[in-house]
């Protein structure tokens, strides 16, 4: 936007003094911070949130609005930035975590906002404030997944599913007839290995990764 704002003439009409009002800026510069914005910036993936200039490209191309009513990444970012915590919690807490990480938003963002990771960081911001009243499925899955990666180095698909269902109190879902017959087919065709491959010297790596988490 032009620096010299004293005089502006468009189509022969002088707009001095009022032009700023009909072209209100939606840009919040990077030095505009709030308590929540700073907090999200520090979470994994949240660093680029302040670059957003609210153009809406992310939301225009987003996978979810066709399937999830009112899913709006642009709005999630705006609410954090303006510090509208109550609206974020009351109207959006059950939406934010639904992002499926398709990356169209990040891919198309003209400002280099890592939108998918920022949306995940906003969900984590809400998780950290315990607004869900219970362990969310995302938190449970992340914990189970990372626990297994750090311990064994690789993911065993069956163990992950079992531990996730167990952690979220749904083990009985895994025992449904269709799930069992699927498991049987996988096992007999050799796609489930009961004694998965171990990585040589992983213990040392595992120890070092645990130190990193301290």
């Amino acid at each position: 936007m032009a620096e010299n704002t004293d005089k502006m003439v468009i189509d022969g009409v002088e707009l001095t003094g009022i032009w700023k009002e009909f072209l209100p800026s939606r840009i919040l510069y990077e030095d505009v911070t709030t308590e929540f914005l700073d907090e999200v910036k520090k979470l994994p993936g949240g660093a680029t949130i302040a670059k957003c200039y609210q153009c809406g490209t992310c939301t225009g191309g987003c996978t979810l609005p066709d399937f999830v009513d009112k899913f709006n990444p642009r709005r999630f970012i705006d609410l954090v930035r303006r510090g509208h915590y109550d609206i974020l919690v009351n109207e959006n807490k059950d939406l934010v975590w639904k992002c499926v990480s398709c990356q169209r938003c990040t891919h198309r963002c003209p400002r280099g906002v890592n939108t998918q990771e920022v949306v995940r960081a906003i969900a984590k911001f809400l998780e950290d404030r315990k607004v869900f009243g219970k362990l969310t499925n995302d938190e449970a899955f992340d914990e189970v997944f990372m626990g297994e990666v750090i311990e064994d180095g690789r993911i065993d698909e069956v163990k992950i599913v079992k531990d996730f269902y167990s952690k979220t109190g749904r083990l009985k879902d895994m025992m449904r007839a269709d799930q069992l017959s699927l498991g049987f087919k996988m096992l007999t065709s050799g796609r489930i290995k009961l004694f998965g491959g171990k990585i040589k010297d992983w213990k040392k790596v595992s120890q070092r990764l645990k130190e990193e988490l301290q």
């Binding site: 994994p44 993936g45 990480s101 990771e117 995940r120 984590k124 995302d138 899955f141 992340d142 997944f145 990372m146 990666v149 180095g153 690789r154 993911i155 990585i199 040589k200 992983w202 790596v205 990764l209 990193e212 988490l213």
Partner: peptide, 21 residues
């Protein structure tokens, strides 16, 4: 002797780990 890349879960949990894996 590869290990898991960390998938989505590492990058949502710990930035440095998500690069180390």
């Amino acid at each position: 002797d590869f290990n898991c890349c960390g998938a989505l879960e590492a990058k949502g949990s710990n930035e440095k780990l998500s690069y180390m894996l």
